[in-house]
Amino acid sequence: MEAENKKLDQFTKEVMQDAGLQAPSTDFLANVMAEVSKEKVAVKVYKPLISKVGWLTIGALFLIFAYVLTNFSLGFSIFGDWDLSSLLMEKYRLNVTIPSTYAYACFFFLIFVVIQIKIFQKQLDKRFHS
């Protein structure tokens, strides 16, 4: 087996020496680049499923719905005689005090989250556009 490999190797060397090297034409690189530039690559454009206006609309509707549920009696209710405004506001008067350090920590945490989201968004935009 090893003898056959040596014979094959010797034969390959002889064929390569007899064939010699061919030099490409002078404008070979220009021709290749012209052919490559002819091909058009489809660019994916990132389009979110829900646009910013859609998210703002959903958020506004959610806030309006929550405000109406907690502050107004609609005159009828699927809960019977329960009035949601009195249920949430008057029966359970919650006096919640938030320490200022906790409020500051939450505020800065939200700022850092927004900054990270913007950084990730720029990285994804670069990835989709390149």
Rank of each mutant, 00 (worst) to 15 (best):
K6F: 03
S73D: 15
Y104R: 07
F112R: 02
F76G: 08
L124N: 04
L74C: 06
V68R: 02
L49A: 10
A34P: 04
L21F: 14
D27K: 07
S25G: 07
L110C: 12
V45Y: 12
S100R: 00
Q116F: 03
I117Y: 02
L69T: 10
L49W: 03
F65C: 11
I115T: 03
C106E: 00
A60E: 01
E4S: 08
I115A: 02
D81M: 02
F72N: 07
K40T: 08
P48N: 06
L94D: 01
E2G: 06
A23N: 13
F76Y: 00
F128N: 07
I64Q: 12
E35T: 05
F72V: 10
L29V: 13
G75Q: 00
T70R: 14
A66S: 11
S100Q: 02
S86T: 15
D9K: 01
F79M: 13
Y46Q: 10
E14L: 08
A66W: 11
D27V: 07
I50N: 07
E4D: 09
H129E: 15
F65L: 09
S51M: 03
T26W: 15
V114S: 11
K38A: 04
I115N: 04
Y92V: 11
L49S: 02
L61G: 09
T101G: 07
V53N: 03
L61S: 09
F28Q: 00
M1C: 00
V45K: 05
I117A: 04
V114W: 14
K52S: 14
W82C: 11
L110G: 09
